[in-house]
Design a protein around this nucleic acid. Sequence first.
DNA 1: AAAACTATCAACCGCTATTAT
DNA 2: AATAATAGCGGTTGATAGTTT
Length: 301
Amino acid sequence: MVHQEEARKGPWTEQEDFKLVCFVGLFGDRRWDFIAKVSGLNRTGKSCRLRWVNYLHPGLKRGKMTPQEERLVLELHSKWGNRWSRIARKLPGRTDNEIKNYWRTHMRKKAQEKKKSTTTTTSNSSSSSSSSSPPPDHDVSSPSQSSSSSNITTVESLPFPDSTTGVESFYDTGGRVVSAYDNRGHDKMKTEAKNHIEDEQQTAAAAVAGCYSMDDIWKEISLPEEGVYNCNNLISTPLIAAAEPSPPAWDEYYCSDSLWINNLDEEVSNKSRGFTQTTATAINDPFNYACFDYGGAFLTG
DNA sequence: AAAACTATCAACCGCTATTAT
DNA sequence: AATAATAGCGGTTGATAGTTT
């Protein structure tokens, strides 16, 4: 590295994605600037975080919003306005960005429909469609509209998790994934880890960046006879050793094969956005089961 | 078949809040 | 307590896929 080049921008490549996932697996999803540096990704920490949160996070759901989710978004938006992240917490697997995008397109459409209907049928009584008409952004003025519909479930009664239930959307995990590296608390561990990390930064970066080509990586992933996906296979041993100042051992976090393969197949058939989509899922699932089992031992909070 | 238009969504920007030193 | 660094949020933009004319 001769000098600090201007950070890369624009779409992420599959290689970048993979690197990022690996390093988040190692260092947790908090220290973004650090990860950006150590990984050798020529990205800002901010960019890394965004990519992770909006695309690579294992807890993310993909595909169309379900009618239930749509209703929930409508209701919550009428309640809270453009508090996208807040709304997203009530929709596990959905990101604020996704909801925001959904709202904009969905509501714009509805607004246009409404405009049409009002201009063409001004003399008519208000149509049923207007009951779901969108307020402009920031319009939080009509909380009653949601409650007026008896078959719309109220937020509180929905089965979706929130902080009170103990089941969290991925927004609430707050990066408490690799607690040894969490820079909040665990002072002793933190110091040790920090030293360790700094010593091994070069090794780690080189290991991930250099030891495996993407072809190798995907070959590893798709080995049918293996049946399991092992993070250790993807990252060279020195890296694992370096990044593991304390238990749990990575060997405990092999993924479940069937889930991984099935989801990958599904995504392959989803031709929406070429390989990136598949890549994300391919990366997501192994780490979901291998590294980011929020319901399991890694969840420290 | 091709141009124009629309919808979708990933990613960036600027700002604010939070945490560390 | 003050300051700096970092994380997070909401708004916006731009690229591209899909649809219509």
